[in-house]
């Protein structure tokens, strides 16, 4: 697609003090106390500013945010089906390309942002997301990951961790660990299969300035970009509402979550702890893991250990995945 239209250039934020005080995801939404995805929405909105169009596939951030014919979005926002956010965003972007080219819209290309949950991004929404990434639309796809279908009552998603007690993977006599499968690696699916994508990152609510800058970087890149954001969910993971940031931090300290950027083939890692805390400490904070035995936790630790072999170390070519065990 011709990319002649003028795009925006968003400045890097240096500190919390420089984060805009203006809210574009305004207060007045029905999300749970201490909601990680809501905080994610707020931070992303601060990063994008008002010259943006958001697409919200069905999920918590649709249902809880827009209940009863009201919405907290100060910019244009449109609901999409859980299945088709990437496609609707593609249509919006294509429309703006042609409208700007024909002089029917006078401004710069708006920031086009999809806020997809884990299901709407890499499970039922995978095809549309991949289509948008493949076709090179100038849009940012954000996957806010609360590791379950939370809106419908915490059912397992491909992002639910091994051992999670969800309402579709209850632990029982025959299946003592609850969820037996290990999660998909969403950013690697995008990086590995979409040559039009030049920027992919992961971010955590524990590091909001980093998150905001990654969003801005993603938007400044011309073409499709993808950011995977770890969003602890007090209701679904079963921890107290004031622990959202603590859980997010512990995820990084234990290696459950790795913050990194991928720019045209180059990885850089952020917030890598000097020494990793055992994953058991992370799992202890959440009731969803409370049924697990030492044997299960050891299995989880082995999964993390394999995943952590790459970050921060020079990676021999052609291995480019941080999940690749060397």
């Amino acid at each position: 697609m011709a990319k002649a239209v003028e795009t925006q250039n968003l400045e890097r934020v240096k500190s919390v003090r420089r984060v805009p005080q203006e809210e574009y995801y305004v207060p007045g939404h029905r999300t749970c106390q201490g909601c990680g995805p809501a905080l994610c929405y707020k931070l992303v909105s601060k990063a994008t500013g008002p010259d943006s169009i958001f697409l919200g596939p069905t999920g918590c951030m649709y249902v809880a945010n827009t209940s009863y014919l009201c919405s907290p979005f100060a910019y244009p926002w449109m609901h999409t089906q859980i299945t088709n956010a990437g496609a609707v965003a593609s249509g919006v972007e294509a429309a703006y390309q042609v409208l700007i080219r024909k002089g029917k819209y006078k401004g710069k290309l708006p920031n086009i942002v999809v806020m997809g949950g884990d299901g709407g991004s890499i499970d039922i929404g995978l095809q549309a997301m991949s289509g948008m990434m493949y076709r090179g639309h100038d849009a940012l796809f954000i996957m806010y990951d609360n590791e379950s279908y939370a809106n419908t009552g915490i059912q397992t998603s491909p992002m639910s961790p091994y051992g999670a007690n969800t309402t579709f993977t209850p632990p029982g006599k025959a299946i003592p660990e609850g969820k037996v499968l290990f999660p998909k690696d969403a950013p690697q699916m995008v990086i590995g299969g979409h040559p039009a994508v030049k920027y992919v990152a992961t971010a955590s609510l524990a590091y909001p300035v980093d998150l905001i800058n990654k969003v801005r970087k993603g938007l400044n890149v011309v073409g499709p970009t993808f950011i995977h954001i770890h969003c602890p969910c007090p209701k679904g993971w079963l921890f107290d509402a004031d622990k959202t940031i603590e859980v997010a931090k512990l995820a990084i300290e234990t290696g459950m979550w790795v913050n990194y950027e991928w720019e045209e083939g180059e990885y850089t890692y952020q917030h890598t702890p000097k020494e990793y805390t055992p994953v058991k400490e992370y799992m202890k904070t959440q009731e969803r893991f409370s049924h697990l035995t030492d044997e299960h936790i050891a299995k989880m630790q082995a999964f993390i250990d394999a995943k952590l072999k790459a970050p921060g170390k020079p990676v021999p070519l052609p291995v480019t995945s941080p999940r690749e065990s060397v």
Partner: peptide, 30 residues
């Protein structure tokens, strides 16, 4: 300010102090 999911803390730049929004704070205590 930065961690509030309900955007219920803001900096009053002139007064140099934090302002709380009682109408929307859900009391998560983050």
């Amino acid at each position: 300010f930065i961690f509030c999911p309900d955007s219920s803390w803001h900096l009053d730049e002139e007064e140099e102090k934090m302002v709380w929004n009682a109408d929307f704070c859900k009391g998560c205590l983050l």
